[in-house]
Simulated scan of single mutants.
Amino acid sequence: MGLGLGLGLGWSQLALAAGAADALRAFVQDAKAGRAGFTQTVHAPNGNRTKVSSGRFEFSRPNRFRFEYQKPYAQTIVSDGEKVWFHDPDLNQVTVRKLGDALGSTPAAILAGQSIERDFDLKDQPDQDGLSWVLATPKSKDGTIQSLRVGFKGRSLSAIEIADSFGQRSVLQFADLQILPSLPAATFHFAVPAGADVSGP
Rank of each mutant, 00 (worst) to 15 (best):
P89V: 06
G81Q: 06
Q93K: 08
R97N: 05
V78F: 04
D80S: 12
L99P: 08
P107R: 09
Q75V: 01
I77V: 15
D90A: 14
T76A: 10
T95F: 01
L103V: 02
H87Q: 10
V96D: 06
H87K: 14
G81F: 01
I77F: 03
V84G: 01
S105P: 07
N92G: 00
A102W: 00
S79L: 06
H87A: 08
L99S: 05
T106V: 00
D101C: 01
V84Y: 03
N92Y: 04
N92L: 03
P89M: 06
Q75T: 02
T95Y: 00
T106A: 06
K83S: 15
K98S: 15
W85H: 08
A109M: 12
F86R: 12
R97F: 04
P107H: 07
T76S: 13
D88K: 08
G81P: 04
E82P: 03
V94M: 10
F86T: 01
T95H: 06
V94Y: 13
R97L: 11
H87M: 08
T76Q: 15
G104L: 12
G100I: 07
L91K: 14
V84D: 06
W85N: 05
A102Q: 01
T76E: 15
H87S: 07
D101T: 01
P107F: 02
S79Y: 09
K98W: 02
D80L: 09
G104I: 08
D88C: 06
S105T: 15
A109R: 13
P107M: 09
L91F: 07
A109Y: 11
G104K: 14
V96E: 03
D80A: 09
D88I: 02
E82L: 09
F86I: 01
W85C: 02
T106Y: 07
T95W: 00
F86P: 05
A109I: 11
P107D: 07
P107C: 07
V96G: 09
P89F: 05
L99V: 11
A108H: 14
E82F: 05
L103I: 02
T76F: 10
D101R: 11
D88A: 03
L103D: 06
V94S: 11
K83L: 15
D80K: 08
P107T: 00
G104H: 07
A102C: 01
K83M: 15
K98P: 10
G104A: 13
S105V: 08
V78D: 02
A102L: 01
D80T: 13
A102D: 03
S79R: 08
A108C: 12
D90P: 05
S79Q: 09
P107N: 11
A108P: 09
P107I: 00
N92D: 13
V96K: 12
D80M: 13
P89Y: 09
L103Q: 04
A109C: 07
A108T: 14
K83F: 11
V78H: 09
N92K: 12
L91N: 10
T95S: 15
N92T: 01
F86N: 14
N92S: 04
Q93C: 01
E82M: 04
W85G: 05
L99C: 10
L99T: 04
P107V: 00
